[in-house]
């Protein structure tokens, strides 16, 4: 059994999600029950493999479980994949997977490009590191869910404005339900992102004060872009709140949700490809430094 679980790779569940997405895309053309069962089967198989993969990594990694950028992206993907599967089961007529699974696959792709090295942590700052990671994870998932709902709102509103009957096998959720999501996710995203940012500052300050691990300079790109993301999300939430009692409110919320996802994606890309001191190991001693080349760091969580 252990051998089987150890043999599960990212490709296994990514391929399952991709096949499930293809089945979902065939929904308007192929209305056979077999398509739905195949879609559910591949999505469930992907989620199972994904879960086993994360459990295996958590159990076998010598450091704190799931504390690398790679794991962080896979956790975010897992949350969205699980939500997608649950919605597909509870609302089989809605093509949720068509909107959520591409995001899941993008997160898996980002994970593949990210470092698998765990963030170095000391026992003294471990709890702050976990809080920082969890809040950032919650913020990112909230932003991505909001964007999915926002995209669906715009498609549904476009269909209703053109006065077209829904395409067979492609029934979208109501505007009311989608607006409910797009109006709430900005608040959740803004406050969890702010909490993630603040906990990151505390973590950095503790490290700096105690001289424990490598501290991140306050002008490090990751600090700047995280601050920018938080400022954007708080602004977006304020705008959504201001438009709440206006007829244009739901449309504005939908566009702002998509814009937030674009800002987050840009931040993630910067994280994947940009240089930073965030998450780097403690400075090596002069003797160690002379024995090996210094490497540029990658940071991956937003």
């Amino acid at each position: 059994m252990a051998e089987f679980v150890a043999g599960i790779s990212v490709v296994c569940f990514a391929a399952s999600y991709a096949v499930a997405l293809a089945c979902e895309a065939l929904r308007p053309a192929l209305r056979s029950g077999v398509r739905g069962i195949a879609m559910l089967g591949f999505a469930a198989a992907g989620l199972l493999a994904h879960t086993l993969f994360l459990v295996w990594r958590a159990a076998t990694e010598p450091s704190i479980p799931l504390s690398s950028p790679f794991d962080w992206y896979l956790l975010a993907a897992w949350l969205l994949a699980a939500g997608s599967l649950w919605l597909t089961i509870t609302q089989p007529r809605t093509p949720v997977g068509l909107f959520v699974l591409p995001v899941v696959l993008m997160l898996v792709g980002a994970a593949q490009l990210s470092s698998r090295q765990p963030f170095p942590q000391s026992p003294a700052t471990q709890i702050w590191g976990a809080i920082h990671g969890m809040f950032n994870l919650a913020a990112s998932v909230a932003v991505l869910l909001g964007a999915v709902a926002g995209g669906m709102w715009l498609i549904q509103a476009g269909r209703l404005a053109r006065k077209r009957a829904p395409v067979q096998g492609f029934r979208m959720p109501s505007l009311e339900r989608l607006a409910h999501v797009t109006s709430r996710t900005p608040g959740i995203a803004a406050w969890t992102a702010a909490a993630g940012f603040v906990s990151g500052i505390v973590l950095n300050a503790v490290n700096r004060q105690r001289g424990l691990l490598e501290t991140v300079p306050w002008n490090d790109p990751v600090v700047v872009r995280m601050a920018a993301v938080v400022v954007w999300l708080v602004t977006a939430d304020a705008l959504v709140h201001a438009a709440r009692r206006r007829a244009e409110g739901p449309r504005a919320a939908a566009w702002l949700a998509l814009a937030s996802a674009a800002v987050l994606s840009a931040s993630m890309l910067w994280g994947v490809f940009g240089a930073t001191r965030h998450g780097m190991p403690p400075p090596a001693s002069p003797a160690a430094a002379s024995s090996g080349p210094a490497t540029a760091g990658h940071e991956d969580s937003p």
Partner: peptide, 19 residues
């Protein structure tokens, strides 16, 4: 697919706006 005006009005349009 519904084919009467009242059923289309409710199921395809009103239900598209309201949950």
């Amino acid at each position: 697919q519904r084919v009467s005006i009242p059923s289309v009005a409710v199921a395809d349009f009103a239900s598209g706006v309201f949950e």
